[in-house]
Amino acid sequence: MLSHLFNSYSPIYELEIGERPIPEPNKDEVLIKVHCASLNDWDLELLQGKPFINKILFGLFKPKIESLGIDVAGEVIALGEDCKNFQIGDRVFGDLSSGKWGALAQFTTAREKELHKIPDSMSFEEAAATPQAALLALQGLLGFGNLDKGKTILINGAGGGVGTFAIQLAKANGLHITGVDKESKFELMKSLGCDVVIDYRKENFTDREDSFDYILDAKSFLKPKDYLRALRKDGIYATAGGSIPLLLEIAFKGFMASTFGSKKLKVIGLEPNKNLDIIIASFEEGKLKPVVDNNIFSLNQLADAFDYLQKGEHLGKVVINIPH
């Protein structure tokens, strides 16, 4: 089968695509014919072996997993003997980051608990775009507690994967939304529900006179003191990504801020696939729609897709079509 071959950590344009055997499912696994996958920042970081903690987790000198790919969407074609939740032919999707990864291949195996059935009206492209980004957005918003209608939220990175889900979920809860991203993404952000838009290249949102009840950050770059300054009394900041040293600093300063003040800083610890049923229900009710970038790449264009992701020009999620 055709697959990304994760034989070594490498720059984007040295990644390998080649043949390897179709895997056999274990007792608690299904074999998936992969139709689509999507890219996440974690895929890009792990490909390059950055930050160093990824090498500690996935192999100091050589990766322990055979191919990258967290978000998978495909069709069940074989079942392990202990599998009871799916049948051959079921369309399934999920986040494979708690297991063996491997979505960037024509076939992959996954444990049943990593998968959900794809709604009938959802395409494979939309399904692949959903699991990790949607759940980072949802779990971030749930971490704020009760979301009171009319309160203000700022979403940083609002035009990307996590951000486009977060806008829709925040709008469904009646929040007043300020979105931060590049100007080229403003039209999309407004169409999804942003009331105010900011180009981060022209303005630092933490320097504005107005402050926010909630801030959801797709990727942190600033210091904790900046985020605290942008929060109202009793405000909460939550981040879904950033460098490990910065995230540790945010977590520590957040502990200090909540101990000695009314503001909170949180780091979202993703729980893969938890509450994906909420996302599915919101999609089926017409309240939530995955945003798939118009530039859909094939597996043989994987290096170009990673380069596109890294440049940050994409709208929503970057999806990979897997050929058969």
Rank of each mutant, 00 (worst) to 15 (best):
K266Q: 08
F165W: 05
I280V: 09
E203S: 15
F212G: 13
R208A: 13
K113F: 06
V92D: 13
K33H: 02
G74E: 11
L135E: 06
Y200Q: 04
D277F: 03
G80H: 11
D90V: 06
L57T: 04
P323H: 08
C83Y: 07
S97Q: 14
A238F: 06
F306G: 01
N85Q: 11
F52S: 15
G157M: 09
A240Y: 11
N294H: 03
R208F: 13
E183F: 11
A137W: 05
C36E: 09
S67Q: 04
I296R: 12
F61H: 14
I32M: 03
I65T: 09
F86H: 04
S184H: 12
D304K: 10
K311I: 05
V267G: 06
L247W: 08
G193F: 03
S121N: 03
L31R: 02
K33E: 06
V180C: 13
H314G: 01
H4E: 01
L169A: 04
Q87G: 05
Q132V: 15
F144I: 09
S262Q: 07
N204L: 15
F144A: 07
L79I: 08
T206K: 07
L276Q: 12
I88W: 05
E19T: 00
K253P: 01
G161M: 07
I198T: 10
V292S: 03
K100W: 11
L231K: 08
T130M: 15
K27I: 12
P290K: 12
Q106I: 03
I279R: 06
K171S: 07
K100C: 11
A257R: 02
L142D: 05
I279H: 07
K264I: 01
G174A: 07
L141H: 06
G150D: 01
N273A: 13
E187H: 15
W101D: 01
F165Q: 10
I244F: 10
T130W: 12
D90N: 09
A238Q: 04
V162L: 14
A166S: 08
P323A: 12
E112C: 01
K171I: 05
I250M: 14
N173D: 10
A103E: 06
A127M: 12
K50A: 12
H116P: 01
G140R: 06
L188D: 08
S8P: 00
S98F: 13
I153R: 03
A230Q: 01
I167H: 08
L104H: 07
E66V: 04
E125L: 15
G235L: 14
G145W: 04
K149Q: 01
G49V: 03
A281S: 09
I320T: 13
S191V: 11
K289V: 05
L39H: 14
F252P: 01
E16S: 00
P21E: 12
R229L: 05
D90L: 05
M189Y: 11
S121G: 02
L228Y: 02
I280A: 02
I244T: 15
L248V: 06
Y308K: 00
E209T: 14
G89C: 04
V180N: 14
K225M: 05
G140S: 09
Q87L: 04
P25G: 02
D181G: 10
P323V: 09
E114G: 06
S3G: 00
K289I: 04
